[in-house]
């Protein structure tokens, strides 16, 4: 799969890459530092299979990005899983209202993180996705 990780924290990027490597899976991870960068990428490339989205980011934050996504005919079918640190009920509701495919809390422990990522990737690997022409 091609995974677009939208995340401003460099360590988090390392974490995902390291996790995928550790799990021995072959996925291509593309990084974007915020929503704007992600949109630029999406506008210029073949669409990825899965979006992993942080909510707290500079410039365009996660929820703003989701809004743009839902209003775009080309991008609205992209499965997006939110990856965030804390549960704010307001954010949770809004994210689901904007059509996210999952809402994942980043666990404190790295081991727990690997487990969660493994499940998520395995799940989406088996899903049929809308492929725009």
């Amino acid at each position: 799969m091609t995974i677009l990780l939208i995340e401003d924290d460099h360590i988090e990027v390392l974490k995902l890459n390291r996790s995928i490597a550790k799990l021995g899976q072959e996925h291509e991870v593309v990084e974007a530092g915020n929503g704007e960068e992600a949109l630029t990428y999406l506008g210029a490339h073949k669409l990825p299979d899965l979006l992993l989205l942080d909510l707290n980011m500079p410039k365009m934050n996660g929820l703003e990005f989701l809004r743009v996504l839902r209003n775009s005919d080309r991008l609205k079918y992209l499965p997006t899983v939110v990856l965030t640190t804390s549960v704010n009920e307001k954010d949770l509701k809004e994210a689901y209202a904007l059509g996210v495919a999952g809402y994942l809390l980043k666990p404190l422990k790295y081991e727990d993180y690997i487990t969660k990522i493994e499940v998520i990737l395995a799940y989406w690997k088996h899903n049929e996705l809308v492929k725009p022409k």
């Binding site: 924290d9 360590i11 988090e12 390392l14 974490k15 390291r18 707290n56 965030t84 640190t85 804390s86 980043k106 666990p107 404190l108 422990k109 790295y110 081991e111 993180y113």
Partner: peptide, 18 residues
């Protein structure tokens, strides 16, 4: 605040694990 405190905490934890 909790997000801003928790995020670095997760990074530290990950780095320690690594």
């Amino acid at each position: 605040v909790s997000h801003d405190l928790k995020s670095p905490l997760r990074s530290i934890s990950a780095l320690a694990s690594w």
